[in-house]
């Protein structure tokens, strides 16, 4: 939980600075996936982020959805499947599938 503490603290700090902030959390995984359920990423409206929800391959998409959530306030449940071939390409353990919940910090 040490990692998540740092991430949550950063989210609180960003809010204190008046920035729009979103939190992304891995809520389920199938097969081999690089980050466990509960892994988090926090991002601010400028695109700055801390933490990770995958080995790096879906972060871009998660941040994009997070920025949308900061704008419209709607929570989102994102699903990512990584095929074996693609997994190899992006350097992930093979065949991972994850669901990521993205929410704005109000």
């Amino acid at each position: 939980m040490g990692d998540n503490e740092e991430i949550l603290q950063r989210a609180v700090d960003w809010r204190a600075q008046g920035k729009g902030v979103a939190l992304a959390t891995v809520v389920s995984t199938w097969g081999s996936s690089p980050r466990p359920v509960g892994a988090k990423l926090a991002l601010e409206q400028g695109g700055g982020f801390i933490g990770s929800v995958s080995g790096g391959c879906v972060e871009g998409a998660v941040i994009e959805e997070g920025l949308k959530a900061i704008t419209d306030g709607q929570p989102r449940l994102l699903s990512f499947g990584v095929s074996n071939e693609r997994a190899w390409e992006v350097g992930l353990a093979c065949g991972g599938k994850i669901q990521v919940f993205v929410e704005r910090v109000e």
Binding site: N4, E5, L8, A11, L23
Partner: peptide
Amino acid sequence: MKLPLLEKALAASRS
């Protein structure tokens, strides 16, 4: 997520 809940989660995690 509401900020007070986030702060509670952080406090619990630390305490």
